[in-house]
Amino acid sequence: MDEILEILEKDARTTPEEIARMTGRSPAEVKAAIRELEKKGVILKYTAIINKDLADSAVQALIEVKVTPQRGIGYDAVAERIIKFPEVLTAYLLSGTYDILVIVEGRNLQEVATFVSEKLATLDQVTGTVTHFMLKKYKEQGVIFHRKKRNKRLLVSP
């Protein structure tokens, strides 16, 4: 992987100047490379990973969606409809016993349940849904939740 991506993936706030210093390139070079990565769609967005358990109350659910694919366009048309709902955080087409995995967020259980029964399950091509409410997050995007960092090393050693 590109070293700039490695750095930004660790900390998206790292400035081009800092990246330049870390990698021995010029800030202009780094800025140009980042612009290129953004243009190509390699870097899509700079965001924060938030532990919502601590920030506010939000409920997430994983929903298995079974779909009848349509002639000529397969799953894409229905997927396009699903992902436009702002409640949908993530959607993947998968192999296996169901077709599309959708991760939905709402303020509470009721909100998510309503979304599933009124919006998702009622789509023409959707033949079935199974909803799994998320109980606890251990790790997301490489970040381990609920972990306190503590120095265990001696403060000075040879």
Binding site: R153, L154, L155, V156, S157, P158
Partner: peptide, 25 residues
């Protein structure tokens, strides 16, 4: 060891950032 002596000084001091460590973080 001179390191040992320095270690004694650092120990017990709160909020120290140590660049004195000879092992990986």
């Amino acid at each position: 060891s001179g390191i040992r002596r320095f270690f004694e000084m650092v120990i017990g001091m709160p909020d120290v950032i140590s660049l004195g460590v000879g092992e990986p973080d």
